[in-house]
Write a protein that binds this DNA or RNA. Structure first.
Length: 368
DNA sequence: ATTTAATCCATTACCACATCAATGC
DNA sequence: CCGCATTGATGTGGTAATGGATTAA
């Protein structure tokens, strides 16, 4: 699983699309996800270089490898203690149809991906490539690797959003903000993204503050009121709507097949791929989401970032609220309940009127 | 350490029929 | 548009059956 592209079956798979549950090479990724606006929304991430089966969560600079949570743990915390000092960078997912150059700008660390990019078959790439390469040359290497946040790029007839953060795990620059030596706006001024317009109203990190009313670079704001629930749009599960029509919040939370709030957010082009408050699989199940990145810390909460206490508080609040949720059966039609409460039964089953019964709810007596 | 049996626990099906909701006239 | 009749679908609770997980031998 995951060695060869699920689409062409020839090239080595490099990205994983959760929506399609498919491992794709870069060329097929671009082809498949440029088909329609919906497919463009699919969130993809790199595939773990070690196991080739799980979405990569971090990039080990020293090993030059993208690793999933498990392989990262095994490689850096398990038997190989000496590798624990390796410098790692967190990886997030992206959507849309980024060109080879744009992928290169965010995956500058990946030499291997350039090979895949070479085979990208979209014709427009060649032109776009030549144009952007000259622009890209103006960007110092340090800015490539330090660039953070997202790009909402609208180019000609296509647009795509890259959800990507590359930041040193052991650095103080752990906030999800632009922390490179150049301000992103300055990059635009430099002509790097001259062809890109930023007027599309997608939910990206730029307008995150506008939508949520708080800065995106401070995890405290994310969990200030309702913890994880606030992110999922679950304001108060105890005040449920009259359950006549729509599914209740509880059912939404517990149902594993229904669309879930987490995913809805993704449809808003906001990546919540690793925003869960708990890294256990059970929590993910409860949330109803099988995240693109199934395990791991939120991007802003990296080891040594000093925000673990904030996260633990948020997780605590989330669990407390989870305990408060009610799962008791609720009666939608009192009249039917009243009727059922007086009906006679045989071994718990309703019987026709007049037939012998072994249980009468009214008298709690048995006829035989 | 492994296998098998026993136990526990949660989930689901079943039943009749009043009621709901949709449809047609 | 409103009211009525018809029809199919739904939901209600206690018990047994079922199956997975856990424990003991």
């Amino acid at each position: 699983m995951g060695y060869n592209c699920d689409y062409c079956g020839e090239a080595r798979s490099m990205v994983y699309c959760r929506s399609d549950a498919a491992y794709l090479c870069l060329s097929c990724d671009r082809n498949v996800h440029s088909a329609n606006p919906l497919s463009k929304r699919h969130m993809r991430t790199l595939v773990c270089d070690t196991c080739n089966s799980q979405p990569a969560l971090v990039r080990c600079v020293d090993e030059k490898a993208s690793l999933c949570q498990n392989c990262d743990w095994v490689g850096h915390n398990g038997a190989n203690i000496g590798a624990s000092t390796h410098s790692r960078q967190t990886l997030n997912c992206y959507s849309g149809c980024p060109s080879a150059v744009e992928l290169s700008s965010i995956w500058s660390f990946m030499e291997s991906c350039e090979q895949g990019m070479d085979s990208m078959s979209i014709a427009e790439n060649s032109q776009e490539n030549s144009e952007s390469k000259t622009q890209d040359s103006s960007l110092p290497d340090e800015n490539k690797s330090d660039w953070m946040g997202s790009l909402n790029i609208q180019n000609a007839n296509k647009s795509h959003t890259i959800y990507h953060e590359v930041k040193p795990l052991n650095s103080s620059q752990s906030k999800a903000s632009y922390s490179g030596t150049k301000d992103p706006e300055q990059l635009v001024d430099d002509g790097l993204y001259d062809d890109f317009t930023m007027d599309e109203v997608d939910m990206n990190i730029e307008n995150y503050e506008e939508l949520f009313g708080v800065g995106h670079n401070d995890p405290k704001h994310l969990f200030a009121k309702d913890g994880i629930d606030s992110l999922f749009g679950m304001k108060d599960t105890t005040k449920e709507p009259e359950c006549s029509n729509a599914a209740s919040v509880d059912s939404l939370m517990s149902c594993k097949t229904e669309p879930n709030p987490c995913y809805t957010k993704q449809h808003s082009n906001l990546s919540f791929s690793s925003l869960t408050g708990d890294s256990s699989g059970g929590e993910y199940q409860d949330c109803g989401a099988s995240s693109v990145v199934p395990m791991g810390e939120p991007p802003w909460c990296t080891p040594g970032s000093g925000s673990t206490s904030v996260r633990s508080d948020a997780v605590l609040r989330y669990k407390e609220k989870k305990k408060m949720r009610k799962f008791e059966k609720r009666v939608r039609y009192a009249t039917r309940k009243a009727r059922a409460d007086v009906r006679k039964r045989v071994k718990g089953r309703f019987i026709k009127a007049g037939e012998a019964y072994d249980y009468d709810p009214m008298t709690e007596t048995r006829s035989f």
